[in-house]
């Protein structure tokens, strides 16, 4: 755990910078309260809240990413030890990747990666 103390120190310094930035912003400002504006729509007024509707395809990308990211979580420790374990580890990883690839091919065929 001791290794992470310097990292946390760097984070604290970053936080100090951000805090200083916000403080300077408050100090030099003419008007304390921020100007409350309508959303920028090139002059138009919004008819509904921005988050009320957005496309479903973002969810598909998220799910696909989860599949791949899990695979990578397994891959990093595997890559460190594969030289010691040898061919068995390679075969196991290839089997795992084959299962994953089958899913990707299915998603591709179903149009999950199509954007237009």
């Amino acid at each position: 755990m001791g290794w992470y103390v310097p990292v946390m120190a760097l984070a604290a310094l970053g936080l100090a910078l951000v805090g200083a930035t916000y403080a300077i912003g408050l100090l030099v400002t003419v008007q304390r309260r921020p100007l409350v504006t309508p959303p920028f729509l090139a002059g138009g007024l919004p008819r509904e809240h921005a988050v009320s509707r957005f496309h479903v395809r973002w969810y598909v990308v998220t799910l696909l990413f989860l599949a791949f990211d899990m695979e990578m979580v397994f891959m990093y420790p595997w890559a460190v030890v594969v030289a010691e374990v040898g061919v068995e580890a390679v075969v196991e990883m290839f089997t795992f990747l084959a299962v994953l690839l089958a899913g990707v091919v299915y998603v591709w065929r179903e149009g999950g990666l199509r954007w237009t």
């Binding site: 912003g25 400002t29 003419v30 008007q31 409350v36 504006t37 309508p38 959303p39 920028f40 921005a50």
Partner: peptide, 10 residues
């Protein structure tokens, strides 16, 4: 630093 701070109403 001297620009006015804004906050959208929503």
């Amino acid at each position: 630093a001297f620009k006015e701070d804004i906050r959208p109403v929503l």
